[in-house]
């Protein structure tokens, strides 16, 4: 497993697209926050991993690396886990680059987002949950192009679903459709897209949500990773 991780990490650091994504998150996104607001950060923190993971992990299928790893005797469990971990590291680095860029830009004050530990844990949780979803899709879909489309569409759809659910929740709160508020809130808080939207808007985050979000994200990450590993272990790898 150590050798798999070393190999994945060295491939990550040599990957040109990784550095392009890192530069985008660290330089462009903090600058654009002033124009588009936190919404752009939430969209980028969703779309960049969705673009990166399938291209990075899909290369293992197209180059034959996946077949070689299995042939060399590494278990499918350790291959999946090491691939998921390297994508999680990449996701954390993307968000850290954004954080560093934003801190530098706003060192005189006016931070666009709360920097307290609960908030940072929420962001880390969303990042892990997204990574788990994209790793599952990228490792189960052997065609890089189809994996890329699946990841990006999943990202966009769950993000838009988060926005739509928030609108419906507000309508339910205004007594337009009473009784639907709690289930809609539960669904919105479970989805990484919903959490990302709430965090980006910032004003609506309650203390309860700050505790629930990381727990929901951790739970989702665990479930998706276990399901992904189970499906990957049974998959016929051509």
């Amino acid at each position: 497993m150590n050798r798999l991780m070393c190999a994945n990490m060295s491939r990550l650091l040599r990957d040109r697209f990784f550095w392009i994504c890192l530069a985008f998150m660290g330089l462009i996104v903090p600058l654009c926050n002033g124009i588009f607001g936190n919404f752009f950060y939430a969209l980028s923190a969703t779309a960049i991993p969705a673009a990166f993971c399938p291209l990075f992990l899909g290369a293992e299928y197209s180059d034959g690396t996946m077949r070689n790893k299995i042939a060399m005797g590494f278990s499918r469990f350790s291959v999946y886990l090491s691939d998921f971990t390297v994508c999680a590291v990449a996701g954390v680095l993307f968000n850290s680059a954004w954080l560093a860029g934003t801190l530098l830009l706003h060192r005189d004050g006016g931070m666009p987002i709360d920097l307290s530990l609960p908030f940072l844990l929420c962001i880390a949780g969303v990042c892990l949950a997204w990574t788990a979803l994209f790793a599952l899709l990228s490792l189960l879909i052997q065609s890089k192009a189809h994996a890329a489309v699946a990841c990006l569409l999943t990202a966009v759809v769950t993000f838009l679903l988060g926005i739509q659910l928030t609108i419906l929740i507000n309508a339910a709160a205004d007594k337009v459709a009473p009784g639907t508020q709690y289930p809609l809130e539960l669904l919105r808080d479970l989805l990484p897209g919903g959490q990302a939207y709430v965090i980006a808007i910032g004003d609506f985050v309650t203390e309860g949500q700050l505790v629930r979000f990381p727990l929901y994200s951790l739970g989702l990450t665990g479930i998706v990773t276990i399901v992904g590993m189970a499906m990957f272990c049974r998959r016929d790898l051509r």
């Binding site: 779309a47 673009a51 399938p54 489309v149 990006l152």
Partner: peptide, 12 residues
Amino acid sequence: AVTSTAAILLSL
């Protein structure tokens, strides 16, 4: 894969 990714990101 690059064209699919680039197209979707460009549309967004």
